[in-house]
């Protein structure tokens, strides 16, 4: 009896690694990276006719309306409509200055204002915000809801 050549029996890990890397990529891409301006704890209402959100060149101003009526802009809470108005006027001033520096007058009016209101907030808390936003001069206003269907 003669002994044949000794062969190493090693598992082929390459396909396993391929699959695992693909899974890692999937989870990395679909992971929720928390945006600073978005309050993830808000429960938005569901709308079947809501359109997909558009990506814009400029960052929108996001107004998170909590169910008690408190408005949160970039993690700062405002309890009154007057305080929100003051904050929005500051935003408008900054946007106007940026538009002036970029030599594109009028760009500040095209800055989007997004209202993300909790499903249990009262309309009486949202309507004054819409009025203030419009009075300041913002023209692009959006409401947010979860999409379904």
């Amino acid at each position: 009896m003669s002994h044949g050549s000794v062969e190493k029996n090693e598992p082929n890990l390459t396909p396993l690694l391929d699959v695992v890397l693909q899974l890692v990529m999937f989870f990395m891409i679909s992971a929720n990276f928390v945006m600073e301006q978005v309050n993830q704890e808000l429960q938005l209402p569901v709308a079947t006719a809501a359109k997909p959100t558009e990506k814009t060149d400029t960052d929108p101003i996001i107004l998170n309306v909590l169910k008690d009526g408190t408005v949160e802009i970039a993690r700062v809470q405002y309890k009154t409509v007057g305080a929100v108005e003051s904050a929005l006027r500051d935003e408008m001033r900054i946007a106007r200055e940026l538009a002036r520096q970029a030599n594109r007058p009028g760009d500040e009016l095209r800055k989007k204002v997004v209202i993300r209101a909790d499903r249990n907030a009262d309309f009486g808390q949202i309507f004054p915000l819409l009025r203030v936003v419009r009075t300041i001069g913002f023209t692009e206003i959006q409401l947010r809801a979860y999409r379904s269907g």
Binding site: A47, A50, P52, V114, Q142, L143, R144, A145, Y146
Partner: peptide, 10 residues
Amino acid sequence: PAPTEGQIAM
């Protein structure tokens, strides 16, 4: 997986 947000333009 958070529900996808949609927009309603005013």
